Amino acid sequence: METVVKSHLHESLLTLTLSRPAFLNALTLDMASQLKAELLQAQDNDQVRCIIIKGDAGHFMAGGDLVYFAGTLSMSEQERHQAGLEAIALVHETISLIRSIRKPVLASVQGAVAGFGVSILAACDLAIAGADLKLTSAYCQVGLSPDGGFTYFLPRMIGEKRAKAVTLLNDVYNAEQVLQMGLVNQVVPVEQLPENTLLLAQRLAQVPQHALAQAKGLINQSSGHSLEQQLQAEQESFAGCMLTPDFAQRVTAFVNKRKSS
């Protein structure tokens, strides 16, 4: 199997590069499988404190590989339907892992971001973009409805009416428009994207891991909770964080610094 997700671990930062440059890093089942495997390994690797997902050769991901879908046209309707269910089940596992992994996941995006690429971008905890970013839904344009949590994340992040416009009209949005929508946290010149990605990832890696994981989980689950349920979850999480070595060390350091000033 060709390696289409390149993995590089350096000083607690794991970079996963989507790499099919000749096809703008379009998603294949092999890519989904490799991304899932890398995320599962990172989940259990204590050396990893932050995960960066980026694309190769100046683009993030131009959606799914239509060559695969064209190959299903010779199947019977039942076979084609089953193939679709199995393929989407696999790619959805990667989205679930991005959300559930107890480590921050940072998207570093530029160039083409379409289809499932938008879903990955939305699923990540934070996102930084190069100024050359061009984002579009692309699903309906080829006769498909969205996947990858696209219809879950976008209405919550940018509002229902705007999410419908992005999905149904297939307009192309530039980096500043995507920033205004709230789909990315920061836009930088393309030549500064690697350096700024590294700086942001290093900041995330320095946050106490247990507290970060708890905060990530609380925010992820909040949209499905009532206020009372979320308050209860926050109470339990806060009390649990008070038992960690990180809390004891940082509070002690703060108090000692205050006494000495």
Rank of each mutant, 00 (worst) to 15 (best):
E86A: 14
N25F: 10
L18T: 02
V118F: 00
K103H: 02
T28E: 05
E11H: 04
E11P: 03
G58K: 04
L85H: 12
S119I: 01
M61K: 04
G115W: 02
I120L: 00
R20S: 08
V67H: 13
T94H: 13
R102N: 11
F116E: 02
E86D: 15
G115F: 03
L16Y: 05
T17S: 01
V105K: 09
T17Y: 04
Q82T: 14
P104H: 07
K36C: 07
I53L: 00
N45G: 09
L35V: 09
G71T: 13
H59L: 04
Q41G: 09
S100L: 10
I88S: 13
Q47Y: 04
H10M: 06
A112V: 11
G64M: 14
L66N: 14
I98Q: 07
L97I: 10
V118S: 01
M75F: 15
I51W: 00
Q43R: 14
D132M: 11
A129F: 06
T28Y: 03
C50N: 00
E86K: 15
Q110N: 12
Q78T: 14
A37H: 05
T94P: 08
A127C: 04
R80C: 11
L97K: 10
G64H: 09
G71F: 11
L90H: 13
H10Y: 08
V113T: 03
S74Q: 15
L73A: 13
L35P: 06
A127E: 02
G55K: 00
F116N: 01
S33T: 10
I98P: 04
T94I: 12
E79P: 11
A42Q: 12
A112C: 11
Q82P: 09
S108R: 06
A57E: 03
H8M: 12
D44C: 10
G64R: 09
V91I: 14
L133Y: 10
R49T: 05
T72C: 13
A42T: 12
L24S: 12
S100W: 06
R49N: 06
L9W: 03
L24D: 12
L126H: 05
A138G: 05
D65I: 11
S12A: 05
R99Y: 04
A131R: 08
A89I: 10
L126W: 00
F116V: 04
L73D: 13
G130M: 05
C50T: 07
Q82K: 11
A42F: 09
V109H: 06
L18N: 02
S74C: 14
V91E: 15
L27M: 09
S108I: 08
G58L: 03
H59P: 05
V91H: 12
S76H: 09
V118W: 00
I95A: 09
A127W: 03
L106M: 07
I128G: 04
E86T: 14
A62H: 07
V113D: 01
D132F: 08
L121R: 02
G84L: 07
R80Q: 15
R99N: 08
K6Q: 12
K134H: 12
D125T: 01
H92S: 15
A62D: 05
V5Y: 01
V48K: 04
V91C: 13
H92T: 15
E93T: 10
